[in-house]
Write a protein that binds this DNA or RNA. Structure first.
Lengths: 140, 140
DNA sequence: GGCAATCGGCATTTGAAATACCGATTGATC
DNA sequence: GATCAATCGGTATTTCAAATGCCGATTGCC
């Protein structure tokens, strides 16, 4: 039961942007603040942009910012988007896996229901509930 | 958001035992049925025995069986036991991780709550709800 | 006493995640 | 229009934990 650091990084970036929604944040700046790989963070940001959670601006002075107010962005939706296509158990994989019990297994549906409860619980809160305060002395 | 195959294997073994609770099941027999590593399954069974979910008998003709009726074994408790100490995000690790946001992060508690909802949802069902029917022609 | 099973530590392999690299593209600024 | 800073996105590489395999010790029925 663990999330990828890909999801972790994406959430950190969103928390930072939720705290300073008025300006663009470059991946270089955020990677430096968090002390993480810039390249990896870039991919998470790109995915969030494709998912419509944030908008990016290219070119000099560009970066990313939230596409909507933080209070309208559910945490569950974000996690579901970032966590993407990872299967919880073997039989949920795209190729079906090799589990010999799949035809008679009643566990699969139960797990899916529990996962939905996980996402739903997160969706009772929004990004606004975990916005990071702007860093002192680092305002643009 | 994925479970280890360690958890997966443990659940399969429990489903098999729930379907035939009257007899012992050896790890060799179950590994053969599922087509998985016997050694790996053995470790999951040992953990479940330490956790009091099942009891093992050594020696000739030994094996494992459920410690209680399947209807009294919650799926959530089993998953929590098997999934054990795996941290969902970096800051939940035993060493605290290296996330620079930990002191001001409000996400951590929200994730813990969602994980609890996941386990709780699974606990509305028991092993009896996903017992495997005995295999035809393989009765002891 | 012998065999069949668990027990549990350790060494090895494997695979996916994480990281790094790099060229292409975009677009603001001068 | 030239330049430079930023995203974009594909690919190659590294890393690490999970998964596997191995083996000796122990237990306990037959």
């Amino acid at each position: 039961m663990r999330l990828t650091s890909f999801t972790d990084f994406g959430l950190r970036a969103l928390m930072r942007m939720a705290g300073e929604p008025e300006r663009d944040h470059s991946t270089a700046e955020m990677a430096a603040e968090f002390g993480i790989s810039r390249d990896h963070l870039t991919k998470a940001v790109a995915l969030l942009a494709r998912g419509g959670v944030l908008v990016t601006r290219r070119g000099h002075g560009g970066g990313a910012r939230l596409a909507r107010p933080a209070s309208e962005i559910g945490l569950g939706d974000v996690v579901a988007l970032l966590e993407g296509g990872t299967a919880m158990v073997e039989c949920d994989r795209a190729d079906g896996g090799g589990c010999t019990l799949t035809p008679v297994c009643r566990l699969r549906g139960l797990l899916a229901g529990a996962e939905a409860a996980f996402i739903e619980t997160l969706n009772t809160r929004s990004l606004a509930d975990c916005a990071l305060p702007p860093r002192k002395g680092a305002d643009a």
